[in-house]
Nucleic acid binder design. Structure first.
Lengths: 198, 198, 198, 198
DNA sequence: AATGAATGAGCATTCATTCAT
DNA sequence: TATGAATGAATGCTCATTCAT
């Protein structure tokens, strides 16, 4: 890491600007100003505007993966692991609104924008969920008929939608803990009342 | 309703073009060509490009609401109603890929793009879920501690993520029925194995 | 003159709209709305937008010529005739602000816009001045060394500038009579004090 | 002052293009081509098309003011000063036809186009005339009953009309000297024959 | 490495004019 | 005659990217 980590400064500035304005309305000059570098300097570190966006994903989600992984390594019970993932994800999204916006909105477009880009880091992140589920199934803790590939999307999608609303300044009546508790219950116990389960 | 129905033709063409290229990369001339009208004709029916996007939402989601509501009216059991919603939503998204893309990707941006626009139709659609949940709670079929406002987002988010992947041509290994069955189970029963439920 | 004199209505409406918005910012639909006819109807009476402008000149200035000529016919003294012209022109411009604007601003552009158009009516109007001057010279009332072609422009230009300011809402401190008196004096007596004239 | 002076080149090119085509028919690309810069470059120096027009006025009329003022500073006799102004104005308009056109035609529209713009430089220029007249009145050389606010407009309007005709390629039979002499005489002595003055 | 002036392709929108009714 | 829906050419301005310094 150089003393003047321009690459990092630009990534940080881009996250902020993309979050605030969206990818298409964000100007390279906005990013340059935010990062306190010249417009042209950005092109010494990135190929083009899309490249910046992708780098933001890779870097920010990479950081997320590291943090979540570190937390999960200390735990062995799949139920607890699932709860940790849920809580950590919601906490991060609430804390880092810029990242939340970028993941929820800009990430969606990326596959359309850049046909040959697959969000590997993102897949890796979501796959943490299926790994937990498979582990739970092996340990006979989670139902065998659950398809991990579907469950991971159900859970991630749910979390994403919850945190999406936070970025809109709506529904802030729920705290992270409340929401995390609810989501853990919904996904683990289901919404059926115990007596009515077949 | 005029015989030519230019308004409808433009909405239909816009849905297709927005789905294919995304709002920002869609050109008015693309839409005009797709709708087989002149560029200027579009402005006889819509104020601007944003207005077209919003109209697409209102119209297409309005149609979705009508269809889902019609199906739900025939059913009284909240469990069945939830299943119906899930199956219908997934079926529609699989069938109408253009609408799916627009909902999943473009709708996300809308609140950012147009500050004073609230997707009323969209809220109305998602609120069908919380209505079902509340009904189930009143009938003691769904757990009392579930917060409908959170559960509706968990469920819709999950469905959205599932169908999002379909539009990417990934994971088409799951049929609508399989996915619907899985989602219903996950949200109703949870993923915990029955014996391990506390 | 037909019962529904559309041609006249369009001319009248155009004068108003051109005055208010200027030729380039005036829309055919503005004129149509003002004249209470359909857009297309205008093209039954005029070839194009320029044609309307030219017709406005011809008609309005034609009316001006008639009125001024009628007044001048009653008078034989060139000094009085000059005063009458000056007073009448200023009075008309003050009364009919729309016409004033069109003459002062739009007429200027016309030669540039329409290369092959010569404002014959306008020339005819201004030539009334040179006719008066020539008559005065023949009667030895006006100085022989005055070139009528220059004097007519000096006088008309001066009047035009005075009334131009009126349309800008500036300098309304001068009444028509005051201004007319001043202008007559300036052009007849000059601004030199009598004692200092060589 | 940069060696390339793009700002100046664009002003010069704009004056030429506005003169030739008029403001509304002038294209930014016309100006860019004339100035030998890219279209976008123009927007590094000016906010918009109107801003270019205003800058042309300010700069060109500013130059005119400087030149006239320099000439007038050497003279003390109001009669001579008036003659100098008249001759200089006509000479400049004849020499610089582009500026002449822009002043005579485009300047007229400006107040209509841009409501909050007042041609300060232009007012300043015309006010040189009223200053001369007031000075002449104080020195008892010009008639006391002349209102300087009206006289300045009479004189400027007359000069403007004379030079306007030059730009139309009409009446080039008069030289600058002839016209200047005539105008000076008309405004100083009036057109009445000496013997017939009351 | 860093700068930022310069570039010029690209597009939403307007509006004079047409023409089927 | 009269209409007004439809047309599509035309353009001011933006901004990602380049490159001389």
């Amino acid at each position: 890491m150089k003393s003047s980590d321009k690459h990092g400064k630009i990534i940080k500035a881009s996250t902020k600007v993309f979050a605030k304005k969206g990818f298409f309305n964000a100007r390279i000059s906005d990013i340059a100003k935010e990062a306190k570098v010249a417009d042209g300097t950005i092109y010494l570190y990135f190929n083009n505007k899309f490249d910046i966006l992708i780098s933001v994903f890779e870097q920010e989600i990479g950081r997320l993966i590291e943090q979540v992984t570190a937390l999960l390594d200390k735990e062995d019970d799949p139920r607890k692991m699932l709860e940790i993932f849920i809580r950590k994800h919601l906490a991060e999204m609430k804390k880092n609104r810029n990242l939340a916006e970028v993941i929820q909105i800009e990430l969606r477009q990326t596959n359309k924008l850049i046909r040959d880009y697959r969000n590997n880091k993102f897949s890796e992140y979501v796959d943490i969920l299926s790994t937990i589920i498979k582990k739970g199934q092996q340990e006979k803790i989670f139902r065998q008929d659950i398809m991990p590939g579907i469950a991971k999307r159900a859970i991630f999608g749910g979390l994403d939608e919850i945190s999406r609303v936070w970025t809109l300044n709506l529904d802030t009546k729920y705290t992270v803990d409340e929401a995390a508790k609810q989501m853990s219950d919904i996904f683990q116990l289901g919404i059926l009342a115990p007596t009515s389960s077949s």
